[in-house]
């Protein structure tokens, strides 16, 4: 099972009928701690808001004084709800209680992944498949109607916004990116002009970044064969990586973790092929006028 398909737990801070009041300070300490440990929390003030689920295990914390909260632990979702006493003396321990519950339920461990992945703005996307053709890591795919999709979020390389830099329509967001419009800020005409300039980086680099890698690799091999200098090879690689880092903001860690040039080229060819196949399918579909228009 993909880790993103694992079940999660929900923590409910209950402050309503049948329990004693939780102060604002206690509530803040508890909820803040839970959020910082990756939990989803609902603060509710009525039993009717409990939203008992058959699928999501819920830990309900309140000042119940050992009493039952009628209706909370019965019905269709009874097995997924557990009442627990709110630790008034130390609200910070709420996170420990929740973590213990998560482990018992064998639920998703939030600390296992930093959520960094592209998000597509379909108001802007023209389904041109440049992102699909560019990404080496199989993050993108197409649905049954050949519409581009982000399919494998956890394959994305943390802090790498490179695919957004090759999108000609500024349609790819990374909500955690430092600057607009990639972070989701409104897109201005200046941004569009700048993006078009960035697309021209492709030609500057000789068609696309992978072509650049390929050419540099060939040139380097030619030189190495003459000079047989490993220092030259390292310098060449460093120059190439520095240029990529500067031009399309790929973090050094991502660049350094890339496979060998040959593997990159192979993956790039595969990605390009996926893009071409998707575009060909669009051209052959009855709705072809709606898609792939860029």
């Amino acid at each position: 099972m993909n880790r993103l398909e694992q079940k999660t737990v929900k923590v409910v801070v209950y402050d309503g009928e049948g329990s004693q009041s939780i102060s604002a300070e206690e509530s803040y300490e508890a909820i803040s701690g839970l959020l910082n440990n990756g939990f989803t929390v609902a603060r509710i003030t009525s039993k009717s808001e409990l939203g008992i689920s058959n699928t999501t295990p819920q830990l309900v914390l309140g000042k119940f004084d050992g009493k039952q909260l009628n209706g909370a632990e019965s019905g269709a979702g009874a097995s997924t709800v557990r009442l627990s006493e709110f630790p008034s003396s130390d609200p910070n321990t709420v996170s420990e209680i929740a973590e213990q519950y998560r482990q018992e339920q064998d639920a998703f461990d939030h600390s296992s992944w930093k959520p960094w992945f592209p998000v597509i703005d379909y108001d802007r996307c023209t389904n041109c498949m440049q992102c699909l053709s560019f990404c080496l890591f199989g993050v993108y795919g197409v649905d049954d109607e050949q519409q581009i999709q982000v399919q494998n979020q956890d394959s994305c390389k943390t802090n790498c916004p490179a695919c957004s830099r090759v999108c000609p329509e500024v349609a790819i967001l990374f909500p955690k990116y430092k600057a607009g419009p990639i972070n989701g800020a409104p897109v201005s005409q200046d941004d569009l002009d700048r993006e078009k300039m960035k697309v021209d980086i492709s030609s500057l680099l000789g068609g696309d970044v992978y072509s650049m890698l390929r050419n540099r690799s060939v040139q380097a091999q030619s030189r190495f064969s003459k000079e047989r200098s490993s220092d030259k090879a390292l310098n060449e690689r460093k120059k190439c990586l520095d240029k990529l880092k500067q031009d399309i903001d790929i973090p050094a860690e991502v660049l350094m973790s890339l496979p060998s040039s040959d593997e990159i080229l192979e993956k790039a060819e595969q990605a390009k092929l996926r893009g071409e196949e998707a575009l060909a399918a669009i051209r052959n579909s009855p709705n072809s006028s709606k898609l792939g228009s860029s």
Binding site: R43, H110, P115
Partner: peptide, 19 residues
């Protein structure tokens, strides 16, 4: 928390979207 209103709080909306 001081408002007394019910609310939902999530650690990370991106993560929830991915899941």
């Amino acid at each position: 928390c001081s408002s007394g209103r019910p609310f939902n709080a999530v650690a990370d909306l991106c993560e929830m979207s991915a899941r």
